[in-house]
Computed example of a mutant assay.
Amino acid sequence: MRVLVIEDNDDLRFTVAAALRAEGLAVDEVADLPAADEALFVTEYDCAVFDRMLPSGDALDYVQDLRRAGRTVPVLFLTSRDRVADRVDGFAAGGDDYLVKPFAAPELVARVRSLCRRAGHVRPPIHRLADLEIDTARRQVRRDGVLLMLTSKEFALLELLATRTDQAIPRAELIEKCWDEMAEPNSNVVDVLVSQLRRKLGDPPLIHTVRGIGYRLATGEDGR
C-alpha cells in the first residue's frame, strides 16, 4: 500500500513517514499543495495524509476540489485544529478521517491502514490459500499453523499478492504499491524480496514467477 504525506514541518513529516514505513507502507513525502497535486496526478495512492494548514493554502479547500473533480483517494487530515466545528468541516469537505496533533504513532498507522483498505475494494481481514493464512489485522502469517517471522516489507508484498490470488501482478505495480519513489523500478528489489519470502514460506511453493510480467500467489505450479 502506498501513502502520500503532505506536511510542511520537516521534523513531523519525517516522523509520520518513518512510522508508516516501519509498518511496511510505501510513503512519498511533499511539503506543499502544488507538490501534492503533482504527486496525485502521476501516482495512484491508497491514502493521503494532509496537514490541514499549509503555507500554500488550506488543505481542506484542496480536498474539496479533489472531490468535486471525482478523485476518491481516502484522505486523513492531520491537524492541531481540535474544535468540533473543525472536524465537521473536515468531513464535509470530503475528508475520511481526522486526527488531532499531538497523536500516537500506532493510532496514526491504524487509521491510515483502515483508510487504505477502503481504496479499491474491501479486503478480507484474513486471506487463506491452501495451508497459508495471512491475518492482515494482526499482521501475522502462518503456514500449516506455524507462525512465520516476516519483515514489514515481506508482509506488505505477500499481502498485495494475496489480494489477487491466481493473478499475475507486474513487478512495476509491486514496486509502486510496496516501495516509495526512492525505489528503482528496474532494480531487483522485488526479486530479492520474493526469494526471501519463498525461503520463509517453504514448500510446496506458493509464489510463482510469471515470466516477463511478475509474480502471482497460487498453488499447483513450480514456484521457482
Rank of each mutant, 00 (worst) to 15 (best):
residue 153 K to T: 14
residue 28 D to M: 05
residue 64 Q to W: 02
residue 169 I to W: 07
residue 115 L to H: 04
residue 113 R to D: 02
residue 4 L to Y: 08
residue 24 G to A: 09
residue 45 Y to D: 08
residue 58 D to G: 10
residue 120 G to A: 14
residue 64 Q to E: 15
residue 59 A to T: 02
residue 78 L to K: 07
residue 195 S to D: 15
residue 223 G to V: 03
residue 217 L to K: 03
residue 213 I to M: 13
residue 21 R to V: 06
residue 123 R to G: 02
residue 7 E to L: 06
residue 51 D to N: 15
residue 152 S to K: 07
residue 132 L to R: 03
residue 184 E to D: 14
residue 114 S to H: 08
residue 150 L to G: 03
residue 5 V to F: 06
residue 78 L to V: 00
residue 134 I to S: 01
residue 124 P to C: 06
residue 184 E to Q: 00
residue 173 E to I: 05
residue 117 R to S: 03
residue 175 I to M: 08
residue 78 L to H: 13
residue 128 R to F: 06
residue 124 P to H: 12
residue 40 L to G: 10
residue 70 G to L: 06
residue 83 R to P: 01
residue 170 P to Y: 08
residue 117 R to E: 04
residue 128 R to Q: 14
residue 26 A to H: 03
residue 38 E to D: 13
residue 130 A to I: 02
residue 177 K to W: 13
residue 177 K to Y: 11
residue 15 T to K: 08
residue 29 E to L: 11
residue 78 L to S: 05
residue 3 V to K: 01
residue 219 T to R: 10
residue 36 A to D: 06
residue 92 A to I: 04
residue 100 V to A: 00
residue 188 N to G: 11
residue 211 R to C: 07
residue 56 S to D: 01
residue 149 M to S: 14
residue 213 I to T: 14
residue 202 G to Q: 04
residue 98 Y to R: 01
residue 64 Q to R: 15
residue 127 H to L: 00
residue 112 V to F: 06
residue 15 T to H: 12
residue 15 T to P: 03
residue 18 A to H: 10
residue 175 I to S: 04
residue 215 Y to Q: 07
residue 65 D to T: 10
residue 135 D to W: 01
residue 73 V to G: 03
residue 95 G to Q: 08
residue 174 L to E: 02
residue 140 Q to V: 09
residue 177 K to H: 11
residue 153 K to D: 12
residue 132 L to H: 07
residue 10 D to M: 14
residue 43 T to W: 02
